[in-house]
């Protein structure tokens, strides 16, 4: 299963980069022209499987269901939107019972280091509690806080802070010990 997914991801990445090249060089690249000719003469279009289209894939989990929820300033209260995302996550985790989850809690930079570590832990735990209440076994979920150590967006205003005040559900098979 894991090997299959890895292979699918690799093909996906290769395909993506090929597409990017084709766009950038606007079809003037000889290799791309040949590929196009090959495809058309066969009358068969070949494309990599889109991993996010597979509802049991981690890509589907992170992209279609959504792997993260956002928080208001200095709170760990789940928003209605966050709860909707987490209901999706809980359903997915129940269907795909091989997967374990680590919830990563984060804070924006407007706070002291220690407090933000504790605040990130509150956020991660709020997600964990919600998933458990939705029926996910508590033994499948661990939490960790990064405080303000791992910002996604680097500007110093609310547009970035809003993205950084997050809890992200990282899924993996058999990684929790």
């Amino acid at each position: 299963m894991t090997h299959l997914i890895k292979a699918a991801v690799m093909v996906g990445v290769l395909t993506l980069s090929a597409c990017t090249n084709a766009d950038r060089f606007d079809g003037t690249d000889a290799a791309n022209l040949n590929d196009a000719a090959l495809n058309s003469t066969n009358g068969i279009n070949q494309a990599a499987l889109d991993p996010s289209a597979n509802p049991t894939s981690p890509q589907y989990f992170s992209q279609t269901i959504g792997d993260r929820v956002l928080f208001q300033v200095d709170t760990s209260t789940l928003t209605a939107e966050g709860q909707a995302t987490l209901r999706g996550q809980a359903g997915w985790l129940q269907t795909n019972s091989d997967y374990l989850a680590v919830i990563e809690g984060h804070a924006d930079e407007q706070g002291t280091r220690e407090y933000n570590l504790a605040l990130g832990a509150r956020r991660a735990n709020a997600v964990r509690e919600f998933l458990i209440a939705q029926g996910v076994a508590s033994s499948r979920i661990r939490v960790v806080s990064y405080g303000k150590e791992r910002p996604l967006a680097v500007c110093s205003d609310e547009s970035c802070y809003a993205q950084n005040r997050r809890a992200v559900t990282i899924i993996s098979i058999g990684q929790n010990s």
Binding site: S76, E114, L117, A118, A121, R122, A124, N125, A126, R128, E129, V143, S145
Partner: peptide, 8 residues
């Protein structure tokens, strides 16, 4: 500080 269940 020790954190358990989100509480520090």
């Amino acid at each position: 500080s020790l954190t358990n269940g989100g509480n520090t």
